[in-house]
Structures are given as structure tokens and as C-alpha cells.
Design a protein around this nucleic acid. Sequence first.
DNA 1: GCGTTCACG
DNA 2: ACGTACGTGAACGCC
Length: 888
Amino acid sequence: MEKLILIDGNSIIYRAFFAMPPLNNSSGLHTNAVYGFTNMLLRLIQDEKPTHIMVAFDAGKITFRHEGYEDYKGGREKTPPELSEQFPLTRELLESFGICWFELAGFEADDIIGTISRQAEEAGKEVLVVTGDKDMLQVVSDKVKVALTRKGISEVEPYGPQEIKDRYGLTPEQIIDLKGLMGDASDNIPGVPGIGEKTALKLLHQFGSVEEVLARTDELKGKMKENLVQHAEDARLSKQLATIHREVPIDRSFDDMIFHGLQEEKAAPVLRKLEFKSLLERLSFSEGAGASEAGDEGARKQDEVDVTVVDETALPELEKQLPKIEVMYVESHGDNPHQAEVMGLILSSLEHHFFVSNEFLLSEAAKPIKEWLADPQIPKCGYDLHRADLALHWQEILFAGAEHDIQLAAYLLDPTDNNQTISGLAAKYSLPSVPSDDEVYGKGAKFKVPDQETLSRHLARKALAMLRLIPLQKEELKKNEMNRLFYELEMPLSRILADMEKQGIAVNREALAELGKEFEAQIEKLETRIYELAGLEFNLNSPKQLGEVLFDKLGLPVVKKTKTGYSTDAEVLDKLAPYHEIVQFILEYRQLAKLQSTYVEGLLKEIRPDTGKVHTFYRQTIAATGRLSSQFPNLQNIPIRLEEGRKIRQVFVPSEEGWYILAADYSQIELRVLAHISDDKGLQEAFLHDMDIHTKTAMDVFGVTQEQVDADMRRSAKAVNFGIVYGISDYGLSQNLHITRKEAAHFIEQYFEAFQGVRRYMDEIVQEAKRDGYVTTLLERRRYLPEINASNFNLRSFAERTAMNTPIQGTAADIIKLAMVLMDETLRKHGLKSRMLLQVHDELVFEVPPEELETMSKLVPETMERALTLSVPLKAEVSSGTNWYEAK
DNA sequence: GCGTTCACG
DNA sequence: ACGTACGTGAACGCC
């Protein structure tokens, strides 16, 4: 017969937490409740041999019970953070055990269990409910037993109808009446004063039910009668509160609950992360293997590999196997993929590994391999295909057909994992060990291309790990509902980015050098003046030496210190300006020195002599929020705020005579996203009318009319809006606006009064993060926040602000990425010659031939605006000119 | 290789 | 009481 075990997750974890001594793993994670829970779970599996298991959780929000009685569970202490952080861990553990869990907003675990146990009973299954909550006894029947925990959780006591009768002299249904009369302090169920278990049982033995007791109070006497008459309503309400709801909508089938047994490859990594060594041993899983962080790699074996080195003799064999090749990997050396040296290519299936040296790849004989690489109809799986594409491109080898990039998938599955190398991923998934590149090649100055034997074997090990990683990633992407994000957004975008990077943007070298001369002249003047005023020459670029001059020699007041000494940043210098005229000159020097070193000299170094262009590299797997980042050079931080710096933009020009630079940027995209996800009616209204959002905020925060908003009020409101997007704190806002914390707190309160939907969103997203351990964007991009339940205030606060900010910044990133994919399609569809060149978070930059300028000026903003439909319109503004400066 | 500073959204 | 605004990359000094 089929046997289903239903576990009340919350109840067991609570009891385990208080029953177990404190326990944590080496990274400080509290694990005692998870440990107790796991122990009990394993014992149940061993003793009961269930065919099905399901764990129910409270969804942690307001339940239907609150609708009738506000104080329900009101008397409970707040859950300690050391316990809260263990809920996401428990869910992760259950998933690794292949055990189904369920929760539903508005219902408690009790109700879920009540419903499933009823359904299971109707389907003829045997059921065992495991909980610490006596209320649950009401669901007992011939088919349904309830195991109550005793002494913490180390023992359980099973109850069937007979056991309930022996213990209480009641039927299971009468348990509800019992609660109705005696109440339950821990659930804040009032019951009737003066009536405890003894009296309640006596009454029920005599009358049978709460209703009957209340109807026949005339048969009673004394204080008890008085209490019952006076609190009749409390008794009825208490009975209602204690009644388990058995018609919860549950979208899980019994098939979902089938327990297939533990699989080491899935369960072991989680147990290792928790450092449950005794459990690993008990399950006879190897203990040291696969601990990704602990550095005990040695315990995982390496694959033995057999590689065919492709030369003209071996080529026919490879050609025969090409249709079966499942993964490819291009090994290259150097951080900048536009200048990377290709070391070799590996093409693998589970049966074969073919190593192709770059020398052979570049030879005429390798034509079939090149045709395979270039064929967009042949889907390719691999690791960092974007980098491979660029490295191959610069040696005139075409690449197309990327389908599944392991690095990109790893990024979506955990964007904050900082070891998304093949070696790191192999460890994370407990696959056979792959030595790190640093181990094989040496790092920094020690880097050396190894002999072909070593290289090809290393690549074959990587390829094997890749072959195994792909199905695991596919499953996880599907489970996280990230298939569309991955296959329809990030993968297509990866090819588009590569195209933009290969195209590059032209830089007017002469104009840049000229600008450099102007800066240089000013810098020299400032240097002379500063040394004069200081009375000595020193290294102005050294904060240490500058600090000594300002604070020791000139005796200026110390405003702020760093870990290593005096702080001399711009904020400090601003405060010091009134004390000494040298300070203003230092600020100007700093500004120009930055422009000179980073933007003039830095950019000049990046211009390719052959093309006169700079080719940035967009990294798609770095930013935790889903944004892109840009390197070699970074074209996402070209100056704009100050006029001197903004001139740098003049040197970014079209690559063809007579063409234009066109730039379009989203207006207030983050606040529009916030209006959508918070469903704040006021904010939505403002955007529907396309109001100036900072003015609107000022009106609502200060309670004034549009005409009464002055520049200062608008400035404050703008800072508040920024703060809201960043996950506001009174301290942060006070720093930004140079006001007291109290004043900042007042602004924030005023803001939340005016925009209550935003307040609700901020509260709910933090709760969601605490419950799930992660937050998501509109397109299901995910960011884990392991510190959201930390007991350390700073860590927890940071995680809370991140929980508020990431869905906003991340959804904005989703949107512009969608726009880029759409834009690429649109350019093709219309057969336009215009080219997309740059992305700067909320801005896209194009070069456009004159005859397309008018078309593009409409098409680009239209495309950006239709990228995603929100409850408020998206707005994009476009402009163009003969260089990037003029396109403002 | 780390800390500080500063450029951008 | 705690002591920060969110996300990046590059240049420089210094050990």
C-alpha cells in the first residue's frame, strides 16, 4: 500500500531549533534546526519507508484566520534571525533530497496538511502526519495517523483513533471542541477563562460539543457557568480558529510527492555545505568530496581522459564524429578577448575528445572545422562562447549558433557566485575534479602554455565537466522558470553584444590628443600653484602625502579618516575649501588628472591602430543585478556631468564619412519600474500623465502645489527618489542631502505616507527575501541574499536594501536587454545599415547613415518603449549629432 | 594585491 | 546600539 508522510515544516523546525544546542557551519550559518529536522526526516524514511513525502510550510503572511480575529498568533515572540535563516536552508535541503514541499499565501501548514491528508485518504492511501501541534489530531481517522513529537523532536508518539480515545476519551472531531473551550496560549486562541484541559474534557464527556455545552449552561452552576455564558462567543470563535481548513487549493499531485530515494550527487553537496559530517557518513556519502569553498579538492577524483590530437591524419575521424559533438571550448590567454591568444580548441562528446591546436585550426586543412564553427544551423554548447567568438573573430574565423553557454547559465542560476569557472562549477555540483587554470598554466608572470599533452588533457577534463553540467543546468533553469530568460533573452543578447564589440566605435585620435594638451597645460599650472601654496613639492597623486601636507603641515581640520590614514576624498575637500585656497586647486587638479589619465591616456591606449576604433568588451556575467559591465575600455563611464569631462564625448564619432551618432535613453526607467511592481497608484498616475517625477514627489512630500515647488524642494525630492530606488535609509539620505538623520527620517516618512504602495512593496519584498532567501525581477532573474536573516545588523541591513533595489535595477536591466534584442531584429527586418554600438544601462548608442537618420530617430525610441508592457508607459528620448557629445 | 579615489547609470 | 545609500571599472600609490 502507498504510504504518504506529511510533515508540518514550521512546527518541526521550531521545535528542533529550541531543542537542539546552537550549531553553525564554518561560514557562520546557523544549522541546528536544519540538523534536527534532517535527522528526524532520515529516521522517518528509514522506519516508515514511505512511498510519498511532502513538507508543508506556513507562507508567513496574513492567513484567512486573521480576517476574523486580529490577535490570532499575536502573542508570539518574533522569530529569532538565527532561526529564520534556517527556513530557506531547509527548503534547499528538501529540494536536494528530491522531496516535495509546498506553501500557499493565506494558509498555514495545518490547512495544507489537512487538505492533502483528506485527498490521500479518499485515494485509499495510508497517511502519517508529523507535527508538534496537538490541533492536528482532529484529522486522525482509520487511514490517517498523527505522530506528535515528544521531548523536543527526538521521539514521536503516533496517534490513531484508539490512542486519542485512550488518552482523552474523545473522537478526533472533538479535538476542535477541546481547543474551543481551553484555548491555546501559543496560538493566542482565547478559549474560556478558567477552563483548562481537565474541565474541558469533563464538559465534553458530558455534552459532546461546544455548541451543546453552550446550549445547556442551565445544567451547570457556579463560576464555570458564569464564564461560559459570558464568553460563549469566545468559545465559538476559538473553535472556529482551531478548525483546520481542508479545502485548500493545492497545485501538487500525488505524483509530485513520490519519494524516489536520496541521490548522492544532489543531496551530498547540500549536506556538505551545511557541514553535516555525521549524516554524510550515515548515508555513506563521501565526506570531503566537492566541498567547493573548503579547498579540500583532493578527495574528488579526476577523470582519466583519452584525447585525439587532430592533424591531417586524424581529421577524417573528427569529420565523421562532428555531428555527434556536444560541447566545444576555445581556450585563450589574456583578459581582453579582442587581444586574446588562442591556445586551442576542444570538441567533445561523451565518447570522444578532439583537441585542435590553434596552428592546425589556422591551417587550410582545418576548413571542415571552420565550416562547422561558422554554421548557425548547428547548435553549439560550451563555456564562454562570447569570448570564443571574439577570439576567433580576430583571427578571421567565423562563429555562430550558440545555444547553451554554461558560464551564462551559471550566472543566471547564481549571479553572485564568484567562482563560475568550469573547475568551480564542477566542485559545486560534486563532479569529478577539474584542476583550475592557474594550477595548470600558472598565474601572472608564471603563466606558461604547457606541452600539448598536458593542455589537451586539461581541456578534455573541462569538456567532460561541461557535458555533465549542461543537463544539471537545464533542469535547474527550468525549475527556476528561467528558460525564456536564458534562451530568448540572454543567449540571443550574447551574440548581439559580440557583434557590437566587433564593430567597435571610432575615436578621433587627433581631437583626443588635442584635448589632452589642453588638460596638460591646466594641470601644470595647478601643480605649480599647489606646490607654491604648500611650500613644498610632493606627489599630488598620493593621498598619503597629500594628507600629510593638508593636515600636518597646513593644520587643516581632519573631517574623516580611512583605515590607513586621513581621508582626502572630494567630500572632505569640499568641507575644507573655506579654510585654505589650496583646497579648491586640489579639487580642480584631481578632476583634470582623472580626465587625463583615465580618459585621454587610457582611451588613446585602447585605440586600435588598424581601425582607429575602440572595441569594448561587455561582460554579461558580472553584475549581481543583471546589468552589463564594460571593460577594455569601460565605455559605460565616459564623463557627462561636468562640462570639462563631457568634452571627451566629442571624440566618439561615426566610423563612416557623413554618418551620425544617435543616442536614445530611457526616461526614469527605474522609477517607472517601481511604479509597476509596487502598484502604487499615485506613482502610476504621475507617469500616465508624464509628469516631472521629482516635482511630483516634492508636491506630495511637502504637501504643496506644483507652483510652490522650488528648486531646493525638487532637489530634495530627487534625492529621496534615488534613495527609494537604492533601498532607503535615513542615514544614507542624511549624508546625501547634508541634513540630520531626523530630518531625513521625516522626509522618508512623508514619502511613504504619500506613496503607500511603495511602502507596502518595500515591506513585502523584504519579507519575501526572508522567506525565500532570494528576490527576483519581472523576468525571473534571481539574486540570493544569504545575509537577509543575519543577526549582524549591518549585514542584514545591507541585504534588506539589496532586496529592495535588485528587483528595480534588475528589471530595468531586463528591459533594456529586451530592447536590444528587439532592436537587432528590427534593424535586420528593415534592412537598415545603421549599427547598434553601445549600451550604457539606460541608453543605446548607434551610428546612422544620413538617409536613415529620420527613420531611426523614430524607430529606436519606439522599439525601446515597446520592449515590455508595464502598468505605466516606458519613455525613451532620442537625439543625434556628428559625435556622442552632440547627441545629447 | 589591496586601498583610495572617482568616472558612469 | 548598530553605522550605509544600489550597481560597476580604471588609475594610482604603496607594500
